[in-house]
Design a binder for these strands. Structure first.
Lengths: 225, 225
DNA sequence: CCACTTCTTTAAGGTTTAGTTAAGAGGTAT
DNA sequence: ATACCTCTTAACTAAACCTTAAAGAAGTGG
């Protein structure tokens, strides 16, 4: 894996240097900023893999910065860890609510810092790579959630319908005969009458509308391109 | 990451040396002891990252050693893998009940040993490092204290229920099937019927209300987003 | 345009899956 | 030892889902 970049935002220069030193030793690239505004600007320019953000800073404090980042399309997916001097729960909770992914209380133990960073990155990676989402036409088929989104509305299809739709959509444009669909969606050695596919197609159409799955008479079905 | 230390406790010296050789080759530090008592003493002194413990030993056998370790404040967090000659289920189950994290049946395949060790360490690290407080909807799940807060009220869930809730909540939105839940919450090679998950879900719902965990029929469960 | 085939649609029955309750095995604390 | 907890399993109930059949609609080829 390529080196990951971490942006550290803190107004205490000594601490900044200390963190930088430790992160570099662990094989991260490090970017530094000394207040919220600068941090945001730098984040926009370099798209770091994670932002370490002090709460107490001049210009724009950490909590404000979190808010700004979470509302910015480019930045909202970047994980954030807050650094807080106060071990006061209210702040922590507020930070988590605003959208940070973790918080660490000062004074910072280096090992803890590193391990938290790695934990957040790992979790984030898992999320990214496991993602199983298909966007076609005006619908989104999310296989992690088993939900189909259309015009902001959620559709919860039963499993077979969902998987049939997902399979067709993942091969959009291609005509698939009933036997293939049965093998791929139902499983290889499962015996069901192929008319069953029709019924499921009907139910999908009933819920999402007729214009996604096309019938190719004598052959099978196709997800419209 | 710094080298991790593994304490191997077994009365067969040849096996001890063989395991030591293989673990060192994998980059672990290795400590050796030849019976339960010695093992405990050494664990106290060096705080290893994991203990590999033979069941059949003079002085103090493996199962007793597990018990002792699990009751000792310093030692109880250290993961344990049992080595057993008998492939007899009763012993395995007893070991897991007493608090070991995995067991391996002799004769030992080196690759298997290594991969089990790494699996246990990984699982353990994840637990240690991950964020311990989750804020979702109107509840706070605090894993440091094993308490769920809802509207200022405290709920003390039993361990499995808590871990299950925490795991689901930490991946909110994503549908997790029962097997995944069992692997992640119960452990990789612990065999319980998957209906057990349902009962735990029921208990969580009973305590916190129905609207956090959703059922996706035919697939699994999902923490509502 | 008729006959034939293939799809659509409905509804019913059967199957699968989850919910729920209860009970027993172990463990833990008093 | 007793009483309480927790976890797991089992068994029953309830509900959702899948499959089938069958009748009618829509295409297709002669």
């Amino acid at each position: 894996m390529a080196k990951q970049t971490i942006l550290v935002v803190d107004d205490e220069k000594d601490l900044l240097d200390l963190i930088e030193y430790n992160l570099r030793k662990e094989g991260f690239n490090v970017l530094k900023a000394e207040n919220g505004e600068e941090g945001i600007a730098m984040a926009k320019e370099h798209s770091p893999d994670l932002v370490l953000l002090d709460i107490m800073m001049p210009k724009m404090d950490g909590l404000q910065a979190v808010e700004v980042m979470r509302k910015d399309a480019e930045l909202k997916r970047i994980p954030i860890i807050l650094l807080t001097a106060r071990s006061d729960e209210k702040t922590e909770v507020e930070g988590l609510n605003k959208g940070s992914d973790d918080y660490i209380t000062k004074p910072i133990s280096t090992t803890k810092l590193i391990s938290r960073i790695k934990a957040v990155l790992r979790r984030f990676d898992e999320k990214e790579e496991a993602t199983n989402i298909l966007e076609v036409h005006n619908i989104t088929i999310d296989r992690d959630r088993y939900i189909v989104y259309k015009d902001g509305e959620e559709f919860h299809l039963p499993r077979k319908e969902f998987e049939l739709l997902f399979f067709l959509a993942s091969r959009k444009g291609k005509v698939l005969d009933r036997q293939t669909l049965l093998n791929k969606v139902w499983g290889d050695n499962i015996y069901v009458v192929d008319r069953t596919v029709d019924v499921h197609v009907r139910k999908i159409r009933e819920k999402l509308g007729d214009h996604y799955i096309e019938t190719v008479k004598g052959v099978g079905y196709r997800f419209k391109e």
